[in-house]
Design a protein around this nucleic acid. Structure first.
Lengths: 228, 228
DNA sequence: CTCCAATAGATAGTGAGACTATCCAATTAC
DNA sequence: GTAATTGGATAGTCTCACTATCTATTGGAG
C-alpha cells in the first residue's frame, strides 16, 4: 500500500506519518522509485502501537522511539528489554543529587525490596521513582499515607506475578517482546484507572452515599451499579 | 518573610514563584506596600505541594491549579474532591466519539465494575481511561493480557480500601483533603514504581528458575522469598 | 539621610516538543 | 495528457513552562 492508504487505515495523518518516519519511529517503506514507496500491514500495526504508547500510555515521542527500537532489536535479553520499558514509563529522578531526604527515602525503598526478597538491580528506575514519591510524601507531612506501603507492595507483587505468567505463556519470542512493552505501558494505565474506580467505590461505601442518578446518555446494556 | 526567603526555603526561583502567582497556583502574600508583600510558612508548604504534584506526580500546571483550587475551596463534598483529583491524574479520552471498539471496551469496564459491585458514577474519568487501555490492548492483538484484568481489579480494591482507611483516620478535615489529593497523585506514582520493581523480580525469578520450555503457569500470587 | 540591593507587577522572550504546512520534482491513475 | 499523489526537505505553528527585562518603589546598612 502507499502512504495515503496507510494513513487511512491507521487514522494518522500523512504529515504525521512523515514526521514519525523522520524521527525513526516508523521504518521506511520499500522504495519502488525516487518518490514512491510501499508499506505493509506491519506498518499499520506499528503505527497503532506508536499511537497507543503515546496517546494511551502518555509516552513522549522520544520515549516511544526508545521502546520501538527495543522491539526492533529483537534479540535483547529480557531484563534489558524490561529495563527499557521501565525507563520509558518513569520520569527522571527529581533532585537525587544533593538531597539527604531523597537518599533516606531511597534507602527505605531498598530496604523494602530487600525485606520482600525481591531481586532488583540497584539502578532500576523504579527505585528512584519510588524514592521521589516517598520523599515528597514525607516533606508534605503526609507520612501516615506510607502506611499503604506494604499494601502497595502486596498489590504490586500480585499483578506482576500474573502479568509475567501471561507473557511467558506466549511461545513466539516476538510476541513476548510486544507483550512486555504493551503490558508494562498499558497495564500501568489500566491498573491506575481501576484504582481510581475502586477508590470511588471505597469512598461511596464509607460515606454511605449513593452515586448520583445515571444520566441516560449511556443506554447501551447494563448501566453502572448504583447499589451495593 | 519576603519572596527571596520564600524562594530559598522552597527551592523555587523567584521568577517561577511569580509565575505561579500569576497562574493562581499560589495565593498572593499580604501586601505591606506597593511593592512589598510578606509570605508565610503556608506559602512554603503550598509551594512544596505544587512541586510535588508537578515534578513527582507529573501533573501539568493547569491540572495542578485545579487540584489546588479544590484544596482551597475547603468545603467541597468528598466525592467532588475525589472527582477533581481523578480528573487531574487522567488524560482526556482518546477517541471516544466515533469508535465502536472504544464503546465496546467501555461497556466491558462498566460490566467489570458492576460485577464487582463497585459504586461508581457513570462519568468517572477512570471508566474512560480504562476503556482507552482496553481498546488499545485489543486493537494491538494483546487480548490475552486482559487476563490480568481481574487481578488488577483485586489489586485496586486492596489498595483503595487501605488508602481510604488511612485518610478517614484523620480528624482534621483540612488534612483529609490534603490526604485525598496527595494520596491520589503520589500514591499512583508509588504503586506504579513498586509494580515495576515487582515485575523485575518476577522476571528474574522466572529466568533464574527454569528456562522457558513448558512450565504450566499455574502457581500464581505468592512469591517465596529468594534473596539475591 | 543616602544609596543600593530587593521587590511587585507587567510584558516580552525562550526553548522544547509535537506536529502541520508548503515546495518541488517525480510518478501514477485515469 | 493532465490532475492527483507521492517522497523528501524545509519551514512554520501552537502550547507549555518557564525566564528575562523593565519600571517604579521600598527596606535597610552605613
Amino acid at each position: 500500500m502507499r502512504i495515503g492508504e496507510l494513513s487511512r487505515l491507521s487514522q494518522v495523518s500523512v504529515a504525521t506519518i512523515k514526521y514519525y518516519l523522520r524521527e525513526d519511529l516508523l521504518p521506511p517503506g520499500t522504495a519502488t522509485a525516487t518518490n514512491q514507496a510501499t508499506y505493509t500491514e506491519a506498518h499499520v500495526r506499528r503505527l497503532r502501537l506508536i499511537r497507543a504508547l503515546i496517546d494511551v500510555g502518555g509516552l513522549s515521542v522520544a520515549r516511544a522511539r526508545d521502546v520501538i527500537a527495543a522491539v526492533d532489536a529483537g534479540d535483547l535479553p529480557p531484563h534489558t528489554l524490561l529495563g527499557i520499558a521501565h525507563g520509558a514509563v518513569t520520569r527522571p529522578p527529581d533532585r537525587s543529587g544533593t538531597d539527604p531526604a531523597w537518599h533516606a527515602a531511597r534507602t527505605e525503598v531498598v530496604e523494602l525490596v530487600h525485606r520482600r526478597g525481591w531481586s532488583v538491580s540497584p539502578d532500576s528506575p523504579g527505585l528512584d521513582q519510588a524514592a521521589d514519591a516517598i520523599r515528597a510524601l514525607r516533606t508534605l507531612g503526609q507520612d501516615d499515607l506510607l502506611g499503604c506501603l506494604e499494601t502497595y507492595a502486596d498489590a504490586a507483587e500480585l499483578v506482576a506475578g500474573r502479568e509475567l505468567d501471561i507473557v511467558v505463556a506466549r511461545a513466539d519470542p516476538t510476541r513476548m517482546v510486544e507483550g512486555v512493552i504493551t503490558g508494562t505501558v498499558l497495564g500501568e494505565v489500566l491498573l491506575a484507572s481501576l484504582r481510581l474506580l475502586a477508590q470511588q467505590d471505597a469512598s461511596a461505601r464509607h460515606l454511605g452515599a449513593a452515586p448520583p442518578p445515571t444520566t441516560p446518555t449511556d443506554q447501551r446494556g447494563s448501566n453502572t451499579a448504583a447499589t451495593t
